[in-house]
């Protein structure tokens, strides 16, 4: 059988998306048998080189090195997949993009003039290259990673989920943290597919999967303001995984 050639790489990130693949303990041996893991530095020490059938990329772009790596992968792969919230929206490393400059942050961590770090505001892959498919989540769900791999074996890509966290949350009959407990839950505007993990344990949706298609952001904002949360707090919470929102969006 022809084994698809995969590259799996990490840019500015925590390796959690790649770890999600390694956490598929029961499927891992089969993945290794059905795919040629040509380039996967986290698990393989030999680099097979281009071309790839698919490059699966974790992380945001924040250094010239990240950018060079991304261009290399895009140029040598038929498909490019953004894996996880950082790759799609910038993620946690980008949360302060709107409020402080990179130079200020570098100086705060390494000291003034102590170090020149070649670093710019963390940005999503789509700012630089075309992306064929995205798997969201911080971290992504295992079954979504497996669904992608299965689809690749069949020469296709998985369907996109287009419903919010609330859809799965309601069908699990969880207590609504937003309406009944008046907590700062972002469920209505966030992409579902996680089976409402956090609300199911009584913890608000922190928005780790980014905006759902046609999110009614303005309505969520109004609802939270009515509940007495401050605008500053709401924006801080919403920008944790995606720095820029259109707060007037009502689609």
């Amino acid at each position: 059988m022809n084994r698809p050639r995969l590259a799996i790489a990490g840019l500015t990130a925590c390796s959690g998306c790649q770890l999600t693949l390694l956490n598929c303990e029961e499927e891992l041996a089969e993945v290794a048998a059905r795919f040629d893991l040509v380039s996967f530095p986290m698990a393989e020490s030999v680099e097979g080189g281009a071309p790839f059938d698919a490059a699966i990329v974790e992380g945001a772009v924040s250094t010239p090195g990240d950018l060079a790596n991304l261009f290399r992968l895009r140029n040598s792969s038929r498909l490019l997949v953004a894996l996880g919230t950082c790759a799609i929206f910038g993620g946690v490393a980008a949360m302060n993009n709107g409020v402080s400059t990179r130079e200020e942050l570098v100086a705060a961590v390494y000291g003034d003039g102590e170090k020149t770090v070649e670093s710019f505001a963390p940005a999503p892959l789509t700012n630089f290259v075309s992306v064929d498919f995205s798997i969201t989540g911080c971290p992504p769900e295992k079954q979504e990673v497996m669904a992608l791999l299965c689809a690749l074996l069949n020469g296709t890509l998985p369907p996109l989920a287009t419903y919010p966290v609330c859809t799965e949350c309601r069908s699990r009959e969880n207590l609504c943290l937003l309406l009944e407990r008046k907590e700062l839950c972002l469920g209505p505007i966030i992409q579902g597919g996680c089976n409402a993990r956090c609300p199911a344990t009584g913890i608000v949706c922190e928005g780790c999967r980014g905006p759902v298609r046609e999110a009614n952001v303005a309505q969520e904002l109004e609802l939270l303001l009515e509940r007495g949360f401050g605008r500053k707090e709401i924006e801080r919470r919403m920008s944790r995984f995606k720095p820029e929102w259109d707060y007037g969006q009502r689609r």
């Binding site: 500015t12 924040s62 490393a93 409020v99 705060a108 961590v109 670093s119 707090e233």
Partner: peptide
């Protein structure tokens, strides 16, 4: 690793 500067990101958060 590309620096993510967490210590600076946390300042100002609750």
């Amino acid at each position: 690793d590309s620096p993510r500067l967490f210590e600076a990101l946390l300042v100002g958060k609750s």
